[in-house]
Design a protein around this nucleic acid. Structure first.
Length: 107
DNA sequence: AACCTGACTCGCC
DNA sequence: AGGCGAGCCAGGT
């Protein structure tokens, strides 16, 4: 399985109503330093609607500014719609909605 | 085929 | 505490 596919697999495992950080996804696929690649992989999201890329945020809970597939606020709306609360206009309440243990993706 | 860049993160100054 | 550089993978030039 390629690194990208592992990224997609991990992101698909993020439960509804929760969010995960790029680093968290990276850890889930075996390489904590692939955070950057995770972002790049999602940038070229091959399966919109299937891969919940809006549930992936930065370490501090901020949504990516480059999230422009329908408007930056789009991501925030989707998350709030799932029950995720924000501490401000663009920061997810990580303490409560960050997924505790993301399942490890087997190759 | 090599080099640059990009939805990130972490460690060192 | 804030800024800077390095490391990771894939794709375009």
């Amino acid at each position: 399985m390629t690194t990208f596919e592992k990224v997609y697999a991990a992101v698909r495992l993020i439960p509804r109503g929760s969010v995960a950080t790029y680093g968290q996804v990276a850890r889930a696929i075996g390489n904590p330093r692939l955070a950057r690649v995770v972002g790049y992989a999602l940038h070229g999201n091959p399966e919109p609607g299937v891969i919940p890329c809006h549930r992936v945020v930065k370490r501090d809970g901020a949504v990516s500014s480059a999230f422009a597939f329908g408007g930056a606020n789009r991501q925030v709306e989707l998350l709030q719609n799932e029950g995720v609360e924000f501490i401000d206009a663009s920061h997810v309440d990580m303490a409560r909605f960050c997924v505790r243990a993301l399942p490890y993706v087997v190759e």
